[in-house]
Simulated scan of single mutants.
Amino acid sequence: MVTDFLHGTVHEAAEDLQAALQSDAIALELWASLTPLGRNEFICWVEDAKQPTTRRRRIERMRDELFEGKKRPCCWAGCIHRTDKAPSRWQQTVLIDRRGKRSL
């Protein structure tokens, strides 16, 4: 049984994401079984949503993907906020503007 909520390597899960996982013991156990980097990717993906409806939809999809056995969000370029590795060439080109400022 998970007692403390586990976050990612860079990001901490917001209250709405925590509540969605804590409302279902199996979802919470699946979340706890992820690596810190896997949790970080899901959190970053949810946090990247610009609108509340998109955020809610991503949280629901995240739960579905956990139940499907996925360890990271599908079709996500990856967290550009990590400091332990440089962004990939694709992330650099698409997600980071020419001034070096990260767009997310």
Rank of each mutant, 00 (worst) to 15 (best):
T3M: 08
L34C: 13
H11A: 02
V94L: 12
K70I: 03
L30I: 08
D84Q: 05
E65D: 14
Q22C: 14
E47F: 09
Q92S: 15
Q92Y: 04
S103D: 06
E65V: 10
G8R: 05
T53W: 14
K70G: 04
G8W: 02
G38A: 07
E47W: 03
A25R: 08
A77N: 00
R63L: 12
D84R: 04
H81F: 13
F67L: 15
L104G: 11
P36Q: 00
S33R: 10
R61S: 12
T9F: 01
H81R: 12
K50N: 10
S103W: 13
F67W: 07
C74I: 09
E68N: 12
G78W: 02
R63G: 05
R102C: 08
V2K: 09
R55T: 09
R55F: 11
C74W: 12
D97Q: 08
I80H: 06
A49G: 06
L17N: 03
G8F: 03
R61V: 09
I59G: 07
V10C: 05
D16I: 04
C44E: 13
V2N: 11
T54H: 07
I59N: 02
R89L: 15
T83K: 13
A14I: 06
R57Y: 15
C75I: 02
K71Y: 01
G100C: 04
L30M: 03
A25W: 03
E65W: 03
L6Q: 14
L17A: 04
G8Q: 06
T83E: 08
A25H: 06
S88P: 11
E12Q: 11
G8S: 03
A14L: 12
R63N: 10
E68V: 01
A13K: 05
D16F: 02
P87L: 08
L6Y: 09
D24F: 00
Q51N: 00
V94I: 03
W45C: 07
A32G: 08
L28D: 02
M1K: 14
T93M: 15
A49F: 06
E68S: 10
M62S: 12
D4A: 09
V10I: 12
Q18C: 05
G78Y: 03
R58S: 06
N40V: 00
D16C: 00
C74F: 11
I26G: 02
Q91G: 04
F42L: 02
H81I: 00
L28M: 09
C74P: 06
G78R: 05
S103L: 15
E41T: 03
E41A: 10
R61P: 04
M1L: 13
Q22G: 08
I43L: 00
R39D: 01
E60H: 07
E15V: 09
Q22H: 01
A27H: 03
A77H: 08
C44D: 11
E15L: 13
V94T: 10
T93V: 12
G38K: 01
T53S: 13
E15F: 07
G100Y: 09
T53P: 03
L34G: 05
S88D: 07
R61E: 12
E29S: 10
A13R: 00
G100N: 08
T54F: 06
L6K: 11
I59T: 01
L17T: 04
F5H: 14
G38Q: 06
L17R: 03
R57K: 15
E41I: 03
M1P: 13
T83A: 06
G78N: 02
G100K: 04
C74S: 13
R89F: 13
K50H: 05
L104I: 10
C74M: 10
M1E: 10
I59D: 01
D64L: 13
E60M: 12
T53C: 01
